[in-house]
Design a binder for these strands. Structure first.
Lengths: 298, 298
DNA sequence: TAGATTGTTAATCGATTAACAATC
DNA sequence: TAGATTGTTAATCGATTAACAATC
């Protein structure tokens, strides 16, 4: 089935640097910021602000103004020197560039808590995304309604995708079902997939996958939070073993596996570190890695 | 209050390139990938796989192996040439690096659909994140339970944060309430914030903000999807006006605002384009920009 | 030893940023 | 005209990648 495990943008940067400025040469980093600008502009539009400077808009979007001007320069020359940008005009130009001036029917597969939340998410509808159908495999869920729409059975996936010309699918199933659902979506004709399940999806060339992991951001916060606490030089608290020659480390690792010790052999600097390797394993064995079971239908 | 509107990592790349390799010199791009590696490793660990090569692990995580080895080189020399990496050892080292070997109590503020989904999200608990409390301002929601926890009133925010030493807060309120909630969290002592509300938050120096926007990824997919459809040279469908001299464009923009026309003056290539600027405005004025009201408590 | 695989180097590429000429 | 602000240049910086020596 000619699948490439990583044909699309599934790196953490979602392919920002990978796909080298295709599509009319707009850098991925710029594309990723367009939604931010659009949001800020829409807010201005609602307040009937007629024009905005790069400085003001940049502040509202949370970027610096040089970057914003550079980004806009890829779209064209939509500003007026000495004046700024016409808000309405720019809203339209960015919407058009992003493809939001057309209607995008999407299906959401897996109607647990998260599927529910997405079905109700106002930010979809307001940007041209229309929920064409909600699908679930669980007979107990099928037939219920979410966001005013009936939840339909997975069996209808193919006919819905084909009849409604759905090209975008959203996966909010448990991780175990994600690849299978993905395959069916692709087979039915979907060419863009937004994946909330913590799984790397394999898709054929020509299919885009983007991924949202609700816990990754939290882990990155924890990383920085950890640094805030202890800024001492010994912060990293690395043990002698971490830098020991390979055989020593390998032996230590074996020991850890066998005996359940961390093998760190460290002192009081991080007293709770002992056994944490095993604790971590135990935890993940129970809770599962990125387990969405509670969020997804059973 | 010494707030900097953008003191932290709120760019689309979440500060990847902004914060120049502080914290022991691990690049932000690498930090952002550590959770991916950790997930793949945890899966291997559950299958009792003892060792893994950079090639195998890279495939499982969806990156290329050179990048993975480069990433790991920032952490230390945890592999064995000719053999690979000890899975358990690496799980522990990455967990420790990310700060996941310690307990992180978090509060979730705003218990709508999304707050519910996050409270139930297994991926939090399995990585050391413990939901210390669920908070909401709505008396109808307060007292109900989610994920086995009672929803408590916002009034208790400060006492909970202080007594339970909460340093991470998750905001899933409607956008209008986000800044106020953020201020209270920060005032109470929270120094890391994960923001799901479509708002740029202002925080003092020393506070990290990361943002998850459920619709941004979808917009980026739409951008690429749009390119797949029409690959003709006229793809961008730019009008003469788009490149017209400033005064002409400015006049056209005024005309559009006054008359409700798009001013594109184009032919049949994109028939529906006329009036879309105004349509877009109308839509967002109704639906709101990134409106989370349906996802959040009323 | 021979094969395998890591850790690192160096080249390349893309993104950011300050500065400023163009021009409203 | 004078002040303001864009669009672009060029320098800098960070990230990616292939290749390979080190070494298990």
């Amino acid at each position: 089935m000619g699948r490439s495990p990583q044909s699309s943008s599934q790196t953490p940067d979602q392919g920002a640097a990978r796909r080298p400025s295709r599509a009319r040469g707009i850098p991925e980093a710029t594309v990723a910021r367009l939604p931010l600008y659009l949001r800020a502009l829409t807010a201005l539009s609602e307040r009937s602000v007629p024009t905005v400077s790069s400085e003001e808009l940049a502040a509202a979007a949370g970027v610096n103004s040089a970057k914003l001007r550079k980004d806009f320069s890829y779209l064209g020359s939509y500003g007026t020197r000495g004046v700024g940008y016409d808000v309405e005009y720019l809203v339209y130009q960015i919407s058009r560039e992003l493809g939001l001036t057309q209607d995008w029917p999407v299906v959401i597969v897996g109607i647990g808590n998260l599927g529910h939340a997405l079905a109700n998410y106002g930010g979809f509808a307001s940007r041209g995304f229309r929920v064409a159908a909600l699908l679930d495999a669980d007979p107990h869920v099928v037939g219920s309604t979410a966001a005013g729409l009936p939840v339909r059975h997975m069996d209808e996936l193919e006919s819905i995708v084909e009849s409604q010309h759905v090209s975008i699918g959203v996966i909010t199933t448990p991780p175990g079902a994600a690849q299978q659902v993905c395959d069916r979506l692709v087979e039915a004709g979907v060419t863009s997939i937004l994946n909330f399940a913590p799984t790397v999806l394999s898709v054929p060339d020509g299919v885009d996958v983007r991924k949202v992991d609700l816990s990754i951001e939290l882990q990155i916060l924890a990383f920085h939070e950890q640094r805030k606490a202890g800024e001492e030089p010994d912060d990293r608290a690395e043990s002698v073993l971490d830098r020991a020659p390979g055989p020593v480390r390998a032996a230590a690792a074996k020991l850890r596996r066998a005996a359940g010790g961390s093998g760190k052999g460290r002192g009081a600097a991080e007293p709770a570190a002992k056994d944490q390797a095993e604790q971590a394993k135990g935890k993940s064995a129970k809770g599962g890695d990125g387990d969405l079971s509670a969020v997804m239908p059973a």
